[in-house]
Simulated scan of single mutants.
Amino acid sequence: MVSCETISSDGSGGRRQPRPAAAIFDLDGTLVDALPDIRANINRALAALGYDRRLDMEETRPLVGGGARNLAASILGKGIDAPETEALYQRFCAIYAHHPAELSRPFDGVIETLTALKERGVRLACVTAKPAVARVAVLDALALSPLFDAALSPEEGFPTKPAPDMLLASCRIMGVAPERAIMVGDTRYDLEAGLAAGCHTTIHISHGYQPLPDDLRGRVMAIDHFRQLLPLFSG
């Protein structure tokens, strides 16, 4: 499925010209199926801190996308600034650095599509709520790091998505205006960030962890496979 193909983030009803020169991607649920590792590592962290609770895959899925601190707070039912939240967050990050991609794999077509875009001269960025140490470890473990011109996480001085700051910073690093970059993600956080940044096109990928929110239909493009990105950079 491809829908809303002519929707651009300015609401003009047509793609901006010239064609996009850069692509910005979320990580978990967009580039990589990281849910098994997220679940395994948060359960390791809970066990290490003496908690009895363990998450199954379906409990973990809706918690992904808002950042590791929000994940810890949601699991514990505590505030984002609570000491218990911070302790679980820190332990989760430390464990993730040692187990970054034991179960994670790129989604079908990701490596081929990124490689094709790179060969066309498209600049590529990864912006994620994942802690920086885990982001680096995952991208390195899956041999994705060389494909990106920029990669950013909140710990590097940015608010989490849906704030557009990481997207705007990645555009500055790539030397591309936001209106010449597309944003691809699988959660509301990603889509709202792309719209707020004024990206050329904001795109929901259906293989991720959250369905396209009803209130964003008609404002973003929807695709089912990474190869459907390639026509945006043709012509």
Score class of each variant (00 low, 15 high):
182 I>W: 02
46 L>P: 14
80 I>M: 13
194 G>D: 09
105 R>S: 15
81 D>I: 12
229 L>N: 02
233 F>K: 06
121 G>N: 02
14 G>H: 15
6 T>Q: 15
69 R>S: 05
225 H>Q: 02
80 I>W: 06
33 D>I: 09
130 K>Y: 00
98 H>T: 15
187 T>F: 05
191 L>A: 03
30 T>V: 03
8 S>R: 06
136 V>N: 07
193 A>G: 12
227 R>N: 03
117 L>T: 02
41 N>Q: 14
200 H>D: 09
159 P>G: 08
229 L>M: 05
48 A>Q: 15
170 S>K: 06
140 D>G: 11
53 R>P: 12
77 G>H: 13
101 A>R: 08
124 L>D: 02
48 A>V: 14
218 G>M: 09
134 A>G: 15
185 G>I: 01
23 A>W: 02
158 F>P: 05
28 D>E: 01
3 S>M: 09
133 V>R: 14
103 L>M: 14
1 M>P: 10
158 F>H: 09
198 G>Q: 05
30 T>A: 00
41 N>I: 12
233 F>I: 00
47 A>N: 15
58 E>Y: 07
67 G>N: 00
222 A>N: 02
231 P>F: 07
25 F>N: 04
81 D>N: 14
140 D>V: 06
105 R>D: 07
23 A>K: 05
198 G>A: 06
161 K>C: 02
79 G>V: 04
171 C>Q: 03
19 R>Y: 00
177 A>D: 10
169 A>N: 03
178 P>V: 06
18 P>K: 07
5 E>G: 13
47 A>R: 15
112 E>F: 10
170 S>I: 00
154 P>I: 01
58 E>L: 13
70 N>K: 05
119 E>G: 07
166 M>Y: 00
153 S>K: 01
188 R>I: 12
9 S>L: 10
59 E>G: 07
69 R>A: 03
37 D>F: 14
60 T>C: 15
15 R>Y: 07
72 A>C: 03
148 F>R: 13
37 D>H: 10
157 G>H: 06
168 L>F: 08
230 L>F: 09
148 F>I: 06
160 T>V: 10
3 S>Q: 13
106 P>A: 13
